[in-house]
Amino acid sequence: MFEIPIPDLKNKVSDIEWQTRVDLAACYRLVQMHGWDDLIYTHISARIPDTDEFLINAFGLAFDEVTASNLVKIDLEGNILDQDCPFEINPAGFTIHSAVHEVRHDAMCVLHLHNNDTIAIATLEEGLQPLSQYSAFALASMSYHEYEGLAVNAQEKARLQQDLGHANFMLLRNHGGMTLGATIGDAFMHMYDLVRACQVQLQIQATGKPPVFIDQSIVDGIKAQANIVHTGLTGGQKSWPAMLRRVYKSDPTFAS
């Protein structure tokens, strides 16, 4: 059996980096708990505040094996910055996440997942439709990116950046979903909304009945409402302590 190296970085990094590591490791565990993981693939990254350095999962570890200490610190060129780091990173994950972190300095965290429901909706020509409150949250800040194969071509980064623009939600055609957030909690809540929106749409479409669409004027007004009641101070930040408690109850080793 492959033995996972067990680094201990708690007293070797700044307090703010350690807290970022703990929150990001918790986010990986939450994704696994929700059944959104894809073996050792897909990624969640977080920028260390006030730097151009970000953290990402070690390639080869399952999401329920991610801890604060085994997250890998890299720069925008993909160089591993942790001294004597025993891990590698996934080149495809680096391409997508570095593309976002290069241009979206407002986004601390980026989630990219291969959830079946987001793949299905991303593959429909019409994409996500205004059929639920969850979809209204996502559609207030939605973008799309066409499929170009495995994300290992550095030239794709510019096209992804252009397609993303200032949006916090993206559906990658034939591929999956991506969300951004000013905090890890916000990015997680955005993904929660996106996944639920896609699930509800597929369930509605499965009935074969004509749906009732949310009026565009309401969708246009959701963004300002969401900033007050769902994200910001009362959304990601309000729900995140509860999410942390859930992970601690399940397996507190994530914070080691």
Rank of each mutant, 00 (worst) to 15 (best):
R246Y: 06
D50A: 09
L55H: 01
V22I: 15
I4P: 05
I89D: 12
L76Y: 08
I96L: 08
M142N: 07
L111Y: 15
T234I: 06
M108H: 12
E3C: 03
L150V: 15
D193W: 11
F188E: 01
L81R: 14
S14K: 03
Y134A: 10
L39R: 05
P252S: 14
R173E: 04
I218A: 03
R29Y: 07
A120G: 05
R196K: 07
T20W: 15
Q129I: 13
R21L: 09
I56M: 13
L124M: 13
A26Q: 08
P211M: 00
G165W: 01
E65P: 03
E125L: 11
E156K: 04
L194M: 13
A138V: 15
A99R: 10
E102I: 08
L24P: 09
S141C: 05
K209N: 09
R196Y: 05
K249T: 05
R104Q: 11
V66K: 04
N57W: 04
M178A: 07
V212D: 11
L164M: 10
A206L: 02
I96N: 00
L113G: 00
F59L: 07
D215T: 00
Q216N: 06
Q155D: 15
I218H: 04
D163M: 09
Y41F: 13
I44C: 03
T42H: 12
W240S: 12
L131P: 00
N227E: 14
H145N: 11
F2T: 15
A140H: 07
F94P: 03
K209L: 13
E77C: 05
L81K: 15
I119Y: 12
V103A: 08
P130T: 11
A25Y: 00
T51G: 14
R245W: 00
G221M: 01
I16F: 02
G176H: 05
L61S: 09
P7L: 05
E53H: 14
T253R: 15
I218F: 07
I40M: 05
A226Q: 02
H101K: 14
L150S: 07
K209Y: 03
I6D: 08
F254D: 01
G127L: 11
W36F: 06
Q161T: 06
S143T: 09
G93S: 09
F54Q: 10
E77I: 00
A154N: 12
M189V: 13
